[in-house]
Design a protein around this nucleic acid. Structure first.
Lengths: 204, 204
DNA sequence: GCTTGATTTAATCATTTGATTAAATCAAAA
DNA sequence: TTTTGATTTAATCAAATGATTAAATCAAGC
């Protein structure tokens, strides 16, 4: 018996994850995945039956990993709002510096597929009923901000954190920004984003 | 002679723009485009020679439209920094409320294609040597912000404006956000984003 | 009405690509 | 060594898809 990570099944799944993340569902050929995994096309179908099935697995696992950065922090009753904000931003940037293709992959593929995968995953409840949002609403109240701005704020937090990864190909195409420079910039944002959000909250 | 807009060539191009924007290059079949345009597949190739050529035209025109929102504002010598900021945000949101698929389309396709289309379009120079950035740097100096934060600020402006459109499919998939509600929210952001940016600039 | 060139179509081709099959290989147990 | 089941491969199939071709249709000018 071979170790889990190097088992053929795992090798194929990792290759699929890699190729799907970069090329998307439509742009990926099963032969690409087989080659990346160092195996034959038939074997891929032997293990996963079809491109579609393999994709679903990759998609589910990617979403799970991605949501993990939220759920692991959001409902801690001990930590302050500020701490949670720092931790969420930290978690996401750390994850995405390692796998920068994830956001564009998720956004593109969820768009293509009108399946209600996200509804099934209860993302809205995870966010809106979290202790984090409760604390955020308190801070907003203290600063006399309108409740309807809650959505704006959440978008800003997520956007400031994730958008740079979505636009990364653009930066690299436009300017002389290396992977290292980009990662360094994202490290800076770990502390900058919470500051900016606080500035927004206490302004007006 | 038929009017330009309803000419067959234009009909095909519009159909191509629509389908490519939604499904991307790999996900689009030339037959989809032909059907959308209400014409036959052969005619498409008669006019545009190949899927690739047709795509290039769509991509170029989409990028041109998109950059127009920047260039039309950036080098006006009369308007203040605040005014320019408002106008850029306004232009983008107005354009993207009409065509919300553009950002995800551009981001996905530029990623797929290592062509240096953007370099050719001189985007970096358009931005960095613009009068807008000069004014932005002055404001940063007044508020004793480090110059290296310029990139962060530009990302924040663009991100706050564009990210909601990129994530729109998610919102609609997660929650009960209608197209109208989304558009209304983006209208609010036309005035909110400049405020937030100012809050960030004057904080710390 | 006829001619001519532009426009449009149906039919077909060649390649790509997802999937299957039957056979070969290999490793472990008897 | 032989047997047995799991793993792997080469070969092939069928459908999808980009592209071409030759013929039909149509509109304008004579």
């Amino acid at each position: 018996m071979v170790a889990k990570d190097s088992s053929t099944e795992e090798k194929i799944k990792n290759a699929a994850r890699h190729v799907f993340h970069i090329k998307g569902y439509a742009g990926t050929r099963t032969r690409d995945i087989a080659e990346e995994a160092g195996i034959n096309l038939a074997l891929l179908n032997y293990y996963f039956r079809s491109k579609e099935k393999l994709f679903e697995i990759v998609m589910m696992e990617t979403l799970r990993d991605f949501l993990q950065s939220l759920t692991s922090v959001f409902n801690d009753m001990e930590s302050s709002f500020e701490t949670k904000l720092e931790m969420v931003v930290n978690n996401y940037i750390t994850l995405l510096v390692k796998e920068p293709e994830i956001p564009l992959f998720i956004l593109s593929e969820l768009r293509r597929n009108p399946t209600h995968l996200l509804q099934k995953m209860n993302v809205k409840e995870i966010i809106m009923q979290s202790y984090f949002v409760k604390q955020l609403l308190e801070v907003m109240e203290q600063n006399k901000m309108a409740q309807k701005d809650l959505l704006h704020l959440i978008i800003n937090i997520i956007g400031m954190t994730i958008f740079p990864f979505v636009a990364k190909p653009i930066f690299q195409s436009i300017g002389e920004i290396s992977n290292e420079q980009f990662s360094a910039m994202m490290e800076e944002r770990k502390t900058l984003i919470p500051k900016w959000i606080k500035a927004i909250l206490t302004s007006k």
